[in-house]
Design a binder for these strands. Sequence first.
DNA 1: AGATGCAGTGCAACTAGTTGCATATGGGGG
DNA 2: CCCCCATATGCAACTAGTTGCACTGCATCT
Lengths: 180, 180
Amino acid sequence: MALEHAILVSLRERSGTGYELARRFDKSIGFFWSASHQQIYRTLKRMVDLGWVTVTEVTQHGRPDKKVYEVGDGGLDELRRWLTQPGEPAAVRMELGLKLRGASFGDTDAVLAEIVSHRDQHAERLDVYRVFEKRDFPDPATLSGQRLHQYLVLRGGIRAEQALLDWCDEVIHAMKRDRR
Amino acid sequence: MALEHAILVSLRERSGTGYELARRFDKSIGFFWSASHQQIYRTLKRMVDLGWVTVTEVTQHGRPDKKVYEVGDGGLDELRRWLTQPGEPAAVRMELGLKLRGASFGDTDAVLAEIVSHRDQHAERLDVYRVFEKRDFPDPATLSGQRLHQYLVLRGGIRAEQALLDWCDEVIHAMKRDRR
DNA sequence: AGATGCAGTGCAACTAGTTGCATATGGGGG
DNA sequence: CCCCCATATGCAACTAGTTGCACTGCATCT
């Protein structure tokens, strides 16, 4: 599984609490790997047992105490091991494709309406990514190392959303034409 | 979950055995929804209990007996219900993005090598899809109904693979430049 | 005063999906 | 003759991920 590795990458960039990790998985990391806070807490516990991360309890004033996690030597070893170990290319999972394929057994217009709605959501995400791109990486040609890698991951998100958006538009166009 | 619905769509297009379904999930349906045979057998059993599909045992000569599944009225109802019920847009899950983001903590060249390998696999899949497109849908402008939907799903696969391929090329180019 | 929201951690029960194994029939190749 | 392959179905045990709930404490909005 990769959640451990997602956590290792994120904690390596900056140490933090389970709560903070959950926030990150709603934002940057979450653009290409999602996880709920329950899953994160459970996994952090397991990672402590494995010796991959160390935990420090921090007493706070005015808010609940927290546990700050850091990547230990075992975690670094595992990170490096995972990075060199090849994996399978991602299997595409398009629920909308499934619905489209089944559309003629039900309400074709309802499926079309859902595709229109998804189209708009992809357009919105794409806008968000484009803003990040302009704001955080105004001059991509000068990037190097970790910063370059971050930029390239964002480029992947942009390409994925753009492809989904274009596909939705193609489907909407073709289905509207077919309805006439 | 959507496996039930994937099976309903597939069985609606043509009735068949669990084994046959598993074959289909290795091919056409599998391009956008994968499932192992164990999962399929278990789900089929549950669907019989739910009254969504009916099963007929067929004695065979020369090979093991089989169970042919068909979509029943309950299954058709469920299919229609599912088609009108909106769902979330797919969360993008890019393990390669994760590795890229973590690359600077380990062996950058190993990550690059994996991206090159994935690039080739996406190119291969894309070729397969392009062959299907030319062979099965030589004149897309004339398509209608179910055939049109099948074509559009294939178009989604093509766009997804093309986007992944282009992204891999962008990453490879940028990382090679950075290495110099 | 009460509601809402953010920060913070966690259990219990469930659904989804994977991996390894077991079993049976019959055909083809070494 | 034995092993592998294709057809065909399935259990058991595991890992992964979701959903719903419970608790604390402070700040801010109504």
